[in-house]
Design a protein around this nucleic acid. Sequence first.
DNA 1: GGGAGTAGGTCAGATCCCGTCCTATATCAG
DNA 2: CTGATATAGGACGGGATCTGACCTACTCCC
Lengths: 313, 313
Amino acid sequence: MTESRLLSLLSLLQTPREWPGGELAERLGVSRRTVRRDIERLRALGYPVEATMGADGGYRLVAGTAMPPLLLDDEEAVAIAVGLSTAARHPVQGIEEASVRALAKLEQVLPARLRYRVRSLGGATVPIPGVPGPEVDPEQLTTLAAAVANRERVRFAYRAHDGSTSTRLVDPHRMVAAGRQWYLLGHDRDRDDWRIFRIDRIADLHATGARIAPRDLPAEDAAAYVTEKLYSLAPTYEAVITLHTPVTEAIRGLGEVAPISEGTCRLRTHADTLDWLAFRLLALGCEFEVHEPAELNARLLALAARLTRAAAQ
Amino acid sequence: MTESRLLSLLSLLQTPREWPGGELAERLGVSRRTVRRDIERLRALGYPVEATMGADGGYRLVAGTAMPPLLLDDEEAVAIAVGLSTAARHPVQGIEEASVRALAKLEQVLPARLRYRVRSLGGATVPIPGVPGPEVDPEQLTTLAAAVANRERVRFAYRAHDGSTSTRLVDPHRMVAAGRQWYLLGHDRDRDDWRIFRIDRIADLHATGARIAPRDLPAEDAAAYVTEKLYSLAPTYEAVITLHTPVTEAIRGLGEVAPISEGTCRLRTHADTLDWLAFRLLALGCEFEVHEPAELNARLLALAARLTRAAAQ
DNA sequence: GGGAGTAGGTCAGATCCCGTCCTATATCAG
DNA sequence: CTGATATAGGACGGGATCTGACCTACTCCC
């Protein structure tokens, strides 16, 4: 039962407080000496345990060079799952894949009794005042991530751009987050060619269980391949705006920013919908002028009209 | 080195794929028989490992009744930390505390080299088109959470409502998320009374190291105590709005909703700033009329004017 | 200086861990 | 049906390891 005790010890030490050796010994049901040895062992494993000496001292786990195994209680596990679910719906540039990987890992081992809590908290409520946009089901993301990792063929119903649906048999290769959307890059068995699928248009997703051989992409980088294909297909809006505010971190996150003068700067960004653009600009809270695209002006005026009507009461 | 191998095994099995025993034996550097025994041991610990028999079979970890220790690689740890940071800034009702607890636990052991990545990803970029509002520093939240858990006295500079600052010595009792804001409920040593502090107004936060004795609240439920005190103190806006749209889940998340007719409903909600209200309403994308408060009308007209000016170019 | 905490050495006995045999069983391909 | 390839698990012996009971040294705070 050594390993069980070691995990319990890790669990205790991950609580952000100090533990005197005597209390640890009591909780673990062993002698003080054994506790010291266990802590020695943890240090040997690369998880540094710091000890404050003298009276009122104790042990606590601190940051080292490797991630120790995280021992979570039920609520913490639910909180992480919910956090990752929303992160999957609103991908943060640079860690989109890692978020989904982590979510898949967690979902794989999440006890059943916690699952419905995650679903009810993370699914129904929309905690973020987003713009109306396509919503991706995190569960589909994790299923696909598992299929990619496990090299399993999948079958699903796909609703194409024009509304027609078809059943696809696909060897999944990679998932890519581009813009605000998730895409699956895979090899379509029936069409015998590489295809890109928007994941929110996928339904009835099942893993077939068939193992597939790794296959080389025609391109070097999957992410670049997908974004290139998408830009040539989907209509996106390229926007150029003058902002009457100094450059801030929040603005830098929107796109390319170049300062014009002390209190103004120029923002170049792109988006898939005009609403998305309009909201991000409005949320900045500063004056601005739109240079491109012309359609954005019309949309802004429409929004202004709606606001005026609402206030007219 | 048994425990080290067991953790490696857990790490491998948490990957969403199947592992044949032979491959596991090779990776762990032991015999097949030992792998079988290790898996037996995992099962005894309560982590169910499923095995598919026959050719092309293998082992994989499935959901059980207890959360197994999560073994994360660097990227996954960063993804979780970022997700929890944004979750702390945009609390999901019901798991606010668990989110912060989990974040504190993770931050405590997060290797230094990953810390700056979390900071640059989760701190600088604002992935969500939020309204301009008070931003809470997740680091302060975790520091406070640790102090609460460890029963440690804290010292900080507090910027009061009227702008004056003072140094406080506080025995922290609990953290409460109310509205879009985090509050600390604690016993002020100098004033010898319970006080509520808005956490975004706290600066120069330090744990003093002094251990404090648990103290009874004058109220039963800390969360209820805080929200009650706040409503009697802070100015909040109570809004009544008619929405020209059927009732949807997104609307239900905003506040109390009552259907009026087929295509209209009445929303009653409250918020601490007018901008917050205006954005949530605008994000719904439907026509609406404001009944209360009157100030909201003026704010909507101001927003409309800004949009019109932006589009005038 | 005393008390309470960590740090660590040593030793003997009990325990368990591991590899090497062995056989039974389930699944799939041909 | 048969062979191949998985998991499942019993038996055994030698070696490694773990644990508790001592012990001393050091540090910090009252």
